[in-house]
């Protein structure tokens, strides 16, 4: 995944979406589904960030010859 600026906006959008969904589901009484959506959003965002950090460390290794 290329590293570009809208990655930050994607993560923030998912975060806000999950927060709203969680609030709506909690209000409508479905607690467990709210928890599920929160966890799902978190997993998606974590996958994106782990991939991003992996690219970062690969770049640093190549720049600083840290083998």
């Amino acid at each position: 995944m290329s590293v570009d600026i809208d990655l930050i906006f994607k993560i923030a959008a998912i975060g806000i979406l999950v927060a709203i969904l969680n609030r709506v589901l909690v209000q409508s009484g479905r607690e467990e589904i709210a928890m599920m959506t929160t966890l799902a959003g978190l997993v998606i965002v974590l996958l994106m960030v782990v991939d991003l950090i992996n690219q970062l460390f690969q770049t640093i290794k190549s720049i600083f010859q840290l083998y």
Binding site: L7, V45, T59
Partner: peptide
């Protein structure tokens, strides 16, 4: 994001740091 989902806020700051480094 910090009020509702503090972990998402942390992830956004990590992503910003990485993008700026790139």
């Amino acid at each position: 994001l910090r009020q509702q989902r503090p972990e998402m806020a942390l992830i956004v700051s990590i992503a910003a740091g990485v993008v700026i480094f790139f």
